[in-house]
Each structure stands twice: as structure tokens, then as C-alpha cells.
Design a binder for these strands. Structure first.
Lengths: 183, 183
DNA sequence: ATCACCATGTAAGCTGTTACATGATTAA
DNA sequence: TTAATCATGTAACAGCTTACATGGTGAT
């Protein structure tokens, strides 16, 4: 029943406890580059998450006419984000993929590799699908067909870029040597 | 007052007249790859566009318990999409950029070049902004910083890819020789 | 003094998704 | 006969944006 925004908040709180205001700032920059939300969406969502036992707050000293609430994620909330990240279901959109990657730190490197491989697989099949769309590539006059081919070319370039990025990320994660095994 | 969906419908009808059902099909594939909509959104929007004098319909023969309506765009509607495409205002999202490019055929090649150059400029500055975000690139353990850098790298790769695509598209359009000038 | 930042909340409106509702024709 | 395609509409709900509302502290 948790929305994507809910998982975003849970994940951000897994980094460190924060106020709603802090979260709103993060959801402008840097998280807002791929997943944004205004404070009017955040405060009610935090209340909802607390009602579900996924976060808890303590009142702290602060400026303003109302109480300043510092939220932190509960064990239940942590399990919830983890389950969301591990459930590689349907096609997810661009923005959500970036959010998922941003929150991968709540998983182990091995688990993260599985998620990235699933993302990679999805892009691999989308790319193959796009390549299968045959648009005659003969020299073309100005018109609907020309711009349609431009969008298809973008789709192909996008998926290729994403595949390369996934490979890069997999290499980075796989290349990590656990501290105990280092010389 | 027209929504993005409204412009999408207007643009599609500028290609050729269509029924709401036809439009719904296009907004699944191929338009749906970047801008999708269900029929429950399309029918009310067509009614709204007709109320604003941007489209007109004629009843044609067809299967089904209700009248089959074939819509076509009016001169006013055509002006509306054109104005939308030419108004290069704020940052637009990925999906909308693709929609705009898909509908560029309603403009002249020279006008289209202006639009693509504006898109290019936006991506150029976003790329520069991303490159200005200094994240220390030292060898990193598993954690929030590592995945954050991964998302930034994606942003940079994305903008670079988009720039190259814009250049490609500009070359294609600029390379078009008007029919009258061909040997 | 005025502005920016801290800090929280509600309400109205628009967009988009999913479900409800109807019914004819054609192909497997 | 069962499913897919054609064909149109409404209703309920979820998500997001914009505006309303309040007020303290610190810097210019």
C-alpha cells in the first residue's frame, strides 16, 4: 500500500534521521533530479507512514510555530523498502529506476547486483524490441515519418546508454572487495 | 488552457483525421512509448477540444452501440499546437520532449530547427550543471555515496546522449534540400 | 526593514489509472 | 463459443501541483 514517494522517504530516512523539511529539501536537490515532491505531499505521507508503523518521530528543538519533528525509519520500514527494491516486477519508468538505484545502499552488494541485473535485462529486451521496429530508412523528406524515426533513434540510443551504464555499475559493485578480505 | 494530452491529440489529428479509438491505439503504440493515455482520458479531452473549437467531428459508419465519430483538427487547433511547439519556455520532461519532436512536422523545417536548438541548449546547460557537481571520485566502499555517484553518472551520460541526438537531428533537418532546389 | 531559511500543516484542482457499462463484427 | 477488435462513454480513486495559512531566527 506504500506509494513510490513513501519508499523514497523510507529510503532517505535509512541514510539518516531527518525532519519533513529536510526531506523536502532533498526531494528538490539532489533526489529531485529524478524524483521530486513538494512539502504538501511529504507531510501527509510521513503521517501515513507513521500510522503504518514504518517511521517514528521525536520532537526536537527548532524554529517555527509548530513542533519540529525528527523522523527515523523503523525496522518494519526498513524491511518494506528492502522488499520493494528486491521485488523486480514490471517495467518501471526512468525516474523510478534512478530512485531505486539511489536507494540500493539499503541492500547488500550481492542483492544490489541482482537488482541491477534485472534492470539491465529489462533494457536489453526493450532495446531488442525497438530494433525490431522496421522503419524504412531511405532518404526522407520533411514530415511525420522523419520525426517518428528521430524518436525511435532516441529510444535506441537511450536503451544502449542505459545498458552500458548498468554494465559499468555492475563492474563497480562486483569489483568491491569486502574490507575483511583486503590486504 | 490546453493540456499536454490535448496537444498530443491535436498533433496526431494534424497527421490525419481519426476516431477516439484510433487515437487511443496510437497512444499505446507508437506514441505510447513516450506519451500514453487511456481512452477514459481521451474521450473527455476530445469533447473539451471540440468545445474550444480546436477539433470537429463527423459521424461515420462503424461497429458499436454508439455513433463512430471521426475527428479532424480545425485551423484554430492547428495554430494552437504550432504555438505550443514554438513556445520554448521552461524545462520540459523527457516524455514531453519526445512528444514535441514527434509533432515537429506541423512546423516548417526552419522552425523545427529552432525548437531542436532550444532543446539542445537546455541539455547543454543541464550537462554543465551536472559536471559542476563535485563528488569526490576516490575509490569508494558500498554505501549511499557510491549509488549517488552512479545516478549522477547516469545524468551526465543521459545529457551527453541527448546532445549528440540533437546534433544528429539538426544535421538531418538542415541537410534537407527543398524540393524546388533539387536537380 | 526586508529577505531567506527554518518548519509545519490544509485545501482545491488537475492529471492519470482502474473499474464499470454497453454492444456489434469477425476470426479461431 | 470464445476471444479479439472496433467503439464510446462515466465514476471512483490516487498522485501531484499550486495556493492558502502561520510564525520564528538570523543575515544584509
Amino acid at each position: 500500500m506504500t506509494s513510490t514517494l513513501g519508499y523514497a522517504l523510507l529510503g532517505l530516512l535509512a541514510r539518516e534521521p531527518a525532519t519533513g523539511y529536510d526531506l523536502a529539501r532533498m526531494l528538490r536537490r539532489p533526489v529531485g533530479y529524478f524524483w521530486s515532491a513538494g512539502h504538501s505531499q511529504i507531510y501527509p505521507e510521513l503521517a501515513r507512514l507513521e500510522g503504518a508503523g514504518l517511521v517514528r518521530h521525536t520532537v526536537v528543538e527548532g524554529a517555527g510555530p509548530r513542533a519540529t519533528k525528527r523522523y527515523r525509519v523503523t525496522a518494519l520500514g526498513r524491511r518494506d523498502v528492502r522488499a520493494w527494491l528486491l521485488a523486480t516486477t514490471a517495467e518501471v519508468d526512468e525516474r523510478e529506476v534512478l530512485l531505486r538505484v539511489y536507494l540500493l545502499f539499503v541492500l547488500s552488494p550481492a542483492e544490489a547486483v541482482g537488482v541491477v541485473e534485472a534492470i539491465r535485462g529489462h533494457h536489453r529486451s526493450t532495446l531488442q524490441h525497438y530494433r525490431g521496429i522496421a522503419l524504412d530508412d531511405s532518404p526522407q523528406d520533411w514530415g511525420p515519418d522523419l520525426v517518428e524515426r528521430a524518436t525511435l533513434r532516441w529510444g535506441i540510443a537511450f536503451e544502449e546508454g542505459r545498458l552500458a551504464w548498468c554494465d559499468d555499475l555492475l563492474t563497480t559493485i562486483t569489483g568491491l572487495v569486502p574490507p575483511a578480505a583486503r590486504p
